[in-house]
């Protein structure tokens, strides 16, 4: 697993509701060498330039559905598999917007044998207008 590939620039896109950009989504792969139960996802944070979106603002979608972090804390049988792209919804009014922006994802998985959760970070410059 290469933490630099946790998030790819082409996996960031606007989310429209009735044609209105209500946020953007980011696809993430787990920064660990195996899949885990969703209850082990201790933290996810998305930074858009200098705006910080914390886990209570985000929604997390896997092959099994879309969940809040409060829900995920109770999910011990649903899993985020190794290599699976999960989608994080970031509620940013106006969506990703024009131009280029720095997107930084932080993911911390609780790893029992390490005694806790350690954040992995991946930052990418994403541009929807090619500059």
């Amino acid at each position: 697993m290469n933490v630099n590939q946790m998030m790819m620039p082409e996996d960031v896109e606007d989310v429209l509701v009735d044609g209105i950009p209500v946020g953007f989504s980011v696809k993430l792969r787990i920064p660990y060498y195996r899949g885990v139960a969703l209850s082990l996802v201790e933290n996810i944070e998305i930074k858009y330039d200098n705006e910080v979106y914390t886990k209570d603002q985000l929604k997390f979608t896997t092959k099994d559905g879309t969940f809040t972090f409060a829900e995920m804390a109770t999910m011990t049988t649903l899993r985020w598999e190794f290599g699976e792209k999960a989608t994080v919804f970031v509620p940013r009014l106006g969506g990703f917007g024009m131009g280029g922006h720095m997107v930084e994802a932080t993911v911390a998985i609780r790893i029992s044998y390490m005694g806790g959760a350690f954040p992995s970070k991946c930052a990418k410059y994403v541009s929807v207008t090619g500059g």
Binding site: R34, V36, A37, A73, T76, R110, S112, G116
Partner: peptide
């Protein structure tokens, strides 16, 4: 085998 003994926060 892994045994996630920290399964719950």
């Amino acid at each position: 085998s892994f045994i996630d003994w920290m399964l719950y926060k």
